[in-house]
């Protein structure tokens, strides 16, 4: 095309570059999924559903069941979120609504620094500081109060589900805080003014307008935190105790999917063993996808909130199917901003 204007050619090149970049991401994701699936094919076809429900992990007899590791992943992530969500969102509210701008800047930088610490350092700290502390002081004290309550039963070892969950919480809090803070800052000032002018105190303004307005983005922040908790490998491997077992007690040692893969990948010599480890990766990938999708559904349920409890839901629910987990646009009442895929 000889006579095309330059701007048009630049535009075409720019367009092509962006399409390539987008396709690249999709290709990498598809490639990883394909590779892991094909590698795990042997173990998955041999074990069937038993691979998911089996509780034994024996490389010698080549009997592989993923349930204890899946249980450990879910339990430690749940413990982490139970601790990290209130603290993370609470500190985000403090930073965006309460703190003076100077305090917010300083603390904000510290939070971002916390998020940037490599996980192996958290792991070392967990192993040498947190675990002994829990073993010698916290766990005996908790047991003294709760007696034989199953959640806190067993010998205080210092390492285990609870310690891993607590360490994960510490790692996840800065992620949740950092994202939530931006979400809360995006709440229009007019919303706060509207509530203040109606005679609401600052607490009532936050509870009644700021948090409801930001809830979609806040769920997004929690999902990001959950993602980090599910996939975190190094720090968890160092404090989980590495015992392939299912126990109701938070004080008991356990295992997680990522920790098994990291620990055993270098010793997996037989093809079946390697395939079983890849199977664990498939389970982890699937868990992440399912929880993400679930969170998105939850967000969509929350987004139609106003009409939740009555029969009007369908009349007023939004038409768009996919609601992005993102910072709400300036006017979520309008449909247009939610139309994005």
């Amino acid at each position: 095309m000889p006579s095309r204007p330059k701007s048009s050619r630049v535009d075409t090149a720019f367009h092509a570059t962006l399409v390539l970049a987008g396709l690249g991401v999709a290709t990498v994701l598809a490639g990883v999924a394909w590779e892991v699936l094909s590698l795990s094919g042997e173990a998955l076809s041999k074990g069937g559903i038993g691979f998911l429900t089996g509780t034994t992990w024996d490389p010698v007899t080549e009997e592989f069941g993923a349930l204890p590791a899946l249980y450990g992943t879910l339990l430690t992530s749940a413990v982490a979120l139970v601790i990290a969500v209130p603290l993370g969102i609470g500190s985000a509210v403090f930073l965006s609504e309460i703190a003076t701008s100077r305090v917010a800047t300083v603390v904000g930088v510290l939070v971002d620094l916390l998020a940037a610490i490599p996980s192996v350092i958290y792991g070392l700290w967990g192993l040498f500081v947190l675990a002994p502390l829990l073993r010698e002081h916290v766990q005996p004290a908790v047991q003294a109060v709760f007696g034989d309550f199953p959640l806190f039963a067993g010998t205080p070892l210092g390492v285990g589900y609870g310690t891993a969950g607590l360490l994960l919480a510490i790692m996840v809090i800065p992620v949740i805080t950092s994202v939530s803070r931006e979400v809360l800052r995006a709440v229009p000032e007019t919303q706060r003014e509207a509530a203040t002018a109606l005679g609401a105190t600052r607490f009532e303004v936050i509870r009644g307008t700021v948090l409801p307005y930001a809830r979609r983005g806040l769920v997004g922040a929690v999902v990001l935190g959950l993602g980090r908790a599910l996939g975190e490998t190094m720090a968890v491997t160092m404090v989980i105790g590495n015992r392939y077992d299912i126990s109701a007690s938070l004080f008991a040692p356990g295992y997680t999917l990522a920790a098994v893969i990291a620990n055993e990948f270098s010793e997996a010599f037989s093809p079946h063993y390697l395939s079983a480890l890849a199977g664990l990766a498939v389970v982890l990938l699937g868990t992440t996808l399912i929880l993400n999708a679930g969170a998105r559904l939850l967000v969509r349920g929350v987004a139609t909130g106003g009409a939740r409890k009555n029969g009007d839901r369908h009349r007023f629910s939004r038409k768009s199917v996919s609601v992005p987990i993102s910072v709400p646009s300036s006017d979520p009442g309008k449909e247009a901003p939610d139309g994005r895929p």
Partner: peptide
């Protein structure tokens, strides 16, 4: 503020209510 109400420049209903 309960006795002296206010209406703002830009309509600002609460979208979640």
């Amino acid at each position: 503020r309960r006795r002296v109400g206010m209406v703002f420049q830009k309509p600002n209903p609460f979208p979640t209510m």
